[in-house]
């Protein structure tokens, strides 16, 4: 593991029954960068993220995050936004903030209140009374309210309109802990390309490319979006 690596995977393999979701993935993700985990639907992006956050505990190979195997120690430094609503419908934003305050040492209550205020969230309203978009905003605000070492965003812009996508990226860029790394999984490359520092292409459970964005652009002589279309071209 190099000194500036935050996430290191060696021969990481994950199967769901007979289906091979990840095959011998070797990755060395740098600290302090915004990393794009790019690939089409079903390529293994979510599986990889679930392994990082310890939602999947059975795998072959090794994963080290900040020098630790996924577990309690890594959960303390990872702020994770899944691709679905993970908050109880019985809760209000205030309840969710209380939960984060109790369990995450790096939770910043002041930042959470500021973000909720900026997003015009009614803190006492239960989630079942909120729209899907508002719930997503609350979740994003909560995840960004942590001064984490690693942020994991699983498809944060899927299913939202282009204007909202820009807003989400802006919110992430303005509010994440600048010393931290961000892993952003998406299949919407053109929208995400601009903000990324490091690119990982994942195809059918294999990492086919992992490198610095500028280096890739210089070496290949094309944009990440064009390269993505080339690598993931349907036969």
């Amino acid at each position: 593991m190099s000194n500036d690596s935050l996430v290191v995977c060696n021969n990481l393999t994950k199967r769901y029954g007979d289906f091979l979701a990840l095959s011998n993935v070797c990755l060395n993700l740098p600290a302090g960068k915004i990393i794009g985990l790019l690939g089409p639907n079903g390529s293994g992006k979510t599986t990889l993220i679930k392994l990082f956050v310890n939602l999947l505990m059975q795998y072959d190979g090794s994963i080290l995050i900040n020098g630790n195997k996924p577990g309690v120690a890594t959960k303390k430094i990872i702020s994770y936004l899944p691709d679905r609503n993970f908050l109880s419908d019985k809760w209000s934003a205030k309840d969710a903030m209380a939960y984060f305050k109790d369990f995450y040492d790096d939770y910043n209550d002041e930042k959470a209140n500021r973000l909720m205020n900026e997003l015009h969230i009614d803190l006492s309203k239960r989630f079942k009374a909120l729209s899907k978009g508002t719930k997503e905003k609350v979740q994003l605000a909560l995840v960004l309210s942590r001064d984490a070492k690693l942020y994991l965003f699983d498809e944060p812009i899927a299913g939202v309109d282009p204007a909202a996508r820009d807003y989400i990226f802006k919110m992430i860029l303005d509010n994440y802990n600048k010393d931290a790394s961000v892993i952003l999984s998406t299949h919407l490359i053109s929208e995400a390309e601009e903000i990324l520092d490091h690119i990982v292409f994942i195809k059918e459970g294999r990492v086919v490319l992992s490198d610095d964005k500028q280096k890739i652009i210089e070496e290949k002589g094309k944009s990440i979006n064009d390269l993505f279309r080339e690598v993931f071209r349907y036969a």
Partner: peptide
């Protein structure tokens, strides 16, 4: 069931507790 095996499990199981 709800706290561990539905969408809420995404929060419960990523909370830093054993």
């Amino acid at each position: 069931h709800k706290k561990l095996f539905t969408n809420e499990g995404y929060l419960t199981l990523t909370t830093p507790v054993s």
